[in-house]
């Protein structure tokens, strides 16, 4: 029975791998549900602030926020790349980064310079490895996105926009469509376009307290932050479902490999037995 011990060890090791991938699949499944809930929980805020921002963009005439003003010449572009912190989630980050890199190449060929802000470890290490100009980054967000952790990273880009260091700001993340489908998406954040905000339901101006400028400034900043927060929440839901699918297929593969190995093992065992029997029979015939 040559090699049967090796086959047994191999089966054991694949079984152990399968246990891990199976556990990861189940962890991802439960985290995915929570991530989806969080994604939904952030929607009311996003809808409300969008409404208010839409009103302001139309009603406010005396003060126009810089985020709403389109610049004629676009020389510098900012890009926020939202990725996951951990790997083992299929093509999630690869697809998103490919979209970013292709877009960056287009910008480069148009003579625009690019600054990058990275949210998530995978995107950050990729961008710094390939030598992109990373302005700010945040890694190790965990499973729950907290606005508090994102503020600094976002502010660097918003400040750069206000200072005129960048003329456009984009965000690239993976949009959650359903458990089986996630799509890398590129979205323009700044300047805010009218279509993005939609048109207001009525025409009136607010009473601003204490005055228009700080209120509008505050609101616009929070609006952008909420858009980014949403992107991060959606990316996390995508990450978990993508991981779940990847781990499920890994578990299925392991199962198949185990089946194949067991067949080989049993064949070898059977061959050895048959050989032994025929030897005994042959021996007995010779004696008789």
């Amino acid at each position: 029975m040559a090699g049967s011990k090796e086959i047994r060890t191999k089966i054991k090791s694949v079984e152990n791998t399968r246990k891990i991938t199976k556990a990861m699949e189940m962890v991802a499944a439960s985290k995915m549900r929570k991530a989806q809930d969080r994604m939904r929980a952030s929607r009311p805020y996003a809808d409300k602030i969008r409404n208010v921002a839409a009103h302001l963009s139309f009603a406010q005439a005396e003060y126009k926020h810089p985020f709403l003003v389109k610049r004629d010449v676009v020389k510098n572009v900012g890009l926020i790349v939202v990725s996951s912190d951990k790997g083992l989630c299929g093509g999630l980050n690869t697809n998103m980064l490919r979209l970013s890199v292709n877009q960056m190449k287009t910008w480069e060929s148009e003579g625009k310079s690019i600054s990058v802000s990275a949210i998530g470890n995978k995107g950050f290490s990729f961008m710094s490895r390939v030598g992109a100009n990373v302005k700010s980054h945040i890694t190790g967000l965990g499973d729950v996105p907290h606005m508090e952790n994102l503020i600094g990273t976002i502010k660097v880009m918003l400040d750069a926009y206000e200072a005129g260091e960048i003329d456009q700001l984009y965000i690239c993340y993976t949009k959650f469509i359903n458990t089986m489908k996630q799509e890398p998406t590129m979205q323009q954040l700044l300047p805010l376009s009218g279509e993005q905000l939609g048109s207001p339901t009525g025409h009136w101006d607010y009473i601003y307290e204490p005055e228009a400028k700080p209120v509008v400034d505050n609101l616009m900043m929070r609006y952008i932050e909420s858009l980014i927060y949403n992107a991060v929440a959606e990316n996390m839901a995508s990450e978990q479902s993508s991981r779940m699918v990847a781990m499920k297929s890994a578990s299925d593969n392991a199962k198949e490999v185990i089946g194949d190995l067991k067949l080989i093992y049993n064949k070898a065992r059977q061959a050895a037995i048959t050989k032994e029997i025929s030897e005994i029979v042959g021996g007995a015939a010779a004696v008789a």
Partner: peptide, 24 residues
């Protein structure tokens, strides 16, 4: 402001050992 500065500094620190411009 403090958060933004912290984020910026972390990025600068991380970028210090990068080699050259973006290699597409």
């Amino acid at each position: 402001e403090a958060k933004a500065i912290a984020a910026k500094e972390a990025a600068i620190e991380a970028m210090q050992n990068r080699t050259s411009d973006m290699d597409y």
